[in-house]
Nucleic acid binder design. Structure first.
Ligand code: SF4
Ligand code: SF4
Lengths: 159, 159
DNA sequence: TATATAGTGGATATTATAGGTCTATAATAA
DNA sequence: TTATTATAGACCTATAATATCCACTATATA
């Protein structure tokens, strides 16, 4: 039973949100992050390392060091974060490529020169992936933050 | 690195396609399915069992027994098959529910009576899930089969 | 320059799950 | 009754997620 984002993705998103939320201060140390999220420092730092390697955050070691966003929060999409943490494999990968059925579905109908060796099943699934990705591309760390502020104001006004 | 459909889902879809494609014959035995897909009988029968338990195929044991679709192929959606095999957990499940940050994001802004204890992150992810599901609901075993026929005719005409 | 601070990367432990096999049992047709 | 076929469950293995620990490196600043 796959098809679930890992906890690491969860943590990564929350960490980035924390960084974006307190961007007034330069650097947020792993201790503060760890405390805010309730995740161990060791494990969280692994995740932060990945985010750094992919240019989503910057890290500075030494006294008063820590992490900060490498880019404006509007430019960090959900899709990007997910792909960094989960990897970039496809949602659906054919595992029947040498089966009788594959020959029937993929090589039978389709003209040889067009999309060779891909049947409709694969194409439907790839479509699903693109659909999902498009949605995740449209949502950024900043867009979540905006909503939080909007709600806060609302709550204050009601008082 | 999650976020990938399991092979079982792959096999299930292909098996159903095979059943739908040869629905003239009453029952397709596990042997024929196994041969068509190139998957061991033992493993495939497990998958077929699941499909039966959820009312997607019917099975009859005994001589000349086998499987057939329990419903017309137009009524079997990709989503359904996927959910039977992969389970019905959500794409994203909060793992920070007792963290400092959760209190900040979820309980701070939102009015108490509305959606309690759900922040924007969760809502974005749930939106993604719904988006994906909608797409998968729109594609059925039959719709794939139709395309196969269309292509075949095309190929024949060209000759 | 010395030193405390803070991130990095590797090794390692612990589970959980996917993926797969095998066998005993139950149901069915001939 | 007997041959055939599906079912359920026990069982195994390899891989991956989750997590911790430690030795190392880089930096600010006193
Ligand atoms: S191309 Fe189609 S038939 Fe071939 S393995 Fe992929 S999904 Fe299956
Ligand atoms: S509701 Fe939001 S802040 Fe709370 S755990 Fe879920 S995603 Fe995180």
């Amino acid at each position: 039973m796959n098809i679930q984002f890992s906890k690491s993705t969860d943590y990564a998103l929350h960490a980035l949100l924390h960084l974006a939320h307190s961007k007034l201060h330069q650097n947020i140390g792993i201790k503060e992050l760890s405390a805010a999220l309730g995740v161990s420092e060791s494990y969280l730092s692994k995740i932060m390392s990945k985010l750094r390697q992919d240019g989503i955050v910057r890290a500075v070691p030494g006294v008063n060091g820590g992490y900060e966003l490498a880019r404006p929060a509007e430019q960090i999409t959900f899709l990007e974060v997910i792909q960094v943490i989960e990897g970039r494999q496809q949602l659906f990968e054919c595992s029947n490529l040498s089966s009788q059925q594959h020959r029937l579905l993929a090589e039978d109908g389709a003209g040889e020169s067009q999309r060779k060796s891909e049947c409709l099943v694969k194409r439907v699934m790839d479509g699903a992936e693109q659909h999902l990705y498009q949605y995740l591309r449209e949502h950024t760390i900043q867009s979540v933050l905006d909503e939080v502020f909007k709600q806060s104001n609302h709550a204050v006004n009601k008082k």
